[in-house]
């Protein structure tokens, strides 16, 4: 455990400069956008020219860019992400309200792609070069070539429009009055198509990685030795090959989280799921730059946290990770 904590501390410290760079980048984007915070505020609240000038003075918008950057950092430290133009509400409030839906979508899609991808990867990697392997490898490549939003549309045409099995869009049936388990079931029904369209595409990644890892392990001495000793093939596949190829996939979970978050923007907008991605698209439509930047900052923090969690998991699974730090 000491090892994991040492790792955690080092990673936390390491992520501070990264976050700082993201903040400075966001500030530059905000500066590049037409209009400033006062324009944004006035559009949503209303006011005359005198008030605009007074606000600019009091908010320090006439100061030099460096001073304004410092003020921006200061307000971020107080968890103040600014004011949304379109919604006339604090950015953080809106973002936190939408975050759970996105996390649910992302989490389910990640679980689907990880478990199904790994399982199929083991099938392909248990006999590298076989017909099964070639079929799965090319099939996964084809899946990886499919744009998520298009797959989403095609699935909607088949399952919602033609067969009418699943709801067309939304997170749950509006004003259905459902509670408890029946509400959870309703949400699950609404999430089948979004999760499938988001998860299926990344499935290919885990499949290919698992397969490549296994193909490599097959050539290693201990596997050759196990085969020479006449251990059953099935046992070698599971106990020796798949087990050793699995570890790098865990790292992929963290690395993919940013891509998953990006992918959910489009999927959420296809299915009108009120999540972070849909919010980002609304922010773009309403030219609401403060909200858009707020979403970017929150996603960056989210990605950092997910990667921290994955690192910890990795340290728990692999005793070699971080061993030097604990002894140092």
């Amino acid at each position: 455990m000491k090892r994991a904590f040492a790792l955690l501390r080092r990673r936390l410290i390491g992520s501070i400069p990264v976050l700082l760079i993201v903040v400075v980048g966001s500030f530059l984007l905000l500066e590049a956008a037409p209009g400033d915070a006062v324009d944004a505020y006035i559009v949503s609240v209303g006011g005359d020219a005198g008030m605009i000038e007074a606000l600019r003075q009091s908010w320090g918008l006439h100061a030099s860019p460096a001073t304004r950057l410092a003020a921006y950092l200061w307000s971020l430290l107080h968890l103040d992400l600014g004011h949304s133009v379109a919604l006339s509400r604090p950015v953080l409030e809106v973002v936190l309200e939408r975050l759970p839906n996105t996390l649910l979508l992302m989490g389910s899609a990640t679980a689907l792609s990880f478990f199904l991808g790994t399982a199929l990867g083991i099938v392909a990697g248990s006999r590298p070069g076989s017909f099964r392997d070639r079929f799965l490898s090319i099939g996964s490549l084809a899946l990886y070539a499919v744009p998520g939003f298009w797959l989403a549309l095609v699935l909607t045409i088949v399952f919602s429009v033609q067969l009418r099995w699943l709801p067309l869009s939304g997170m749950e049936t509006i004003a259905s009055g459902k509670t408890g388990f029946s509400r959870a079931l309703d949400i699950a029904r609404h999430l089948v198509l979004p999760v499938t369209s988001l998860g299926i595409i990344y499935l290919a990644l885990y499949l290919r990685m698992m397969r490549a890892g296994m193909a490599e392990v097959w050539r290693m001495d201990f596997v050759v030795a196990a085969r020479a000793r006449g251990i059953a093939r099935r046992r070698i596949v599971w106990r020796h090959v798949a087990r050793n190829a699995l570890l790098p996939l865990v790292t992929m979970l963290g690395l993919q989280s940013a891509a998953m978050l990006g992918g959910s923007v489009v999927i959420e907008s296809v299915f009108s799921i009120p999540g972070l991605g849909r919010l980002a698209q609304e922010a773009v439509g309403a030219r609401d730059t403060p909200l858009l930047i707020g979403i970017i900052l929150v996603s960056a923090v989210l990605v950092i946290l997910i990667n921290l969690a994955v690192d910890l998991l990795y340290a728990v699974l692999d005793p070699r990770v971080g061993a030097s730090e604990a002894s140092a």
Binding site: V22, L261, A280, I295, I296, I304
Partner: peptide
């Protein structure tokens, strides 16, 4: 490399979205 990290931390598609919408 810290700048590279920062760019990898922000979801790429959101970044593209933000740039196109601002410019």
């Amino acid at each position: 490399m810290r700048i590279t990290d920062a760019f990898q931390t922000v979801p790429g598609f959101l970044l593209s979205l933000a740039l196109v919408s601002v410019v």
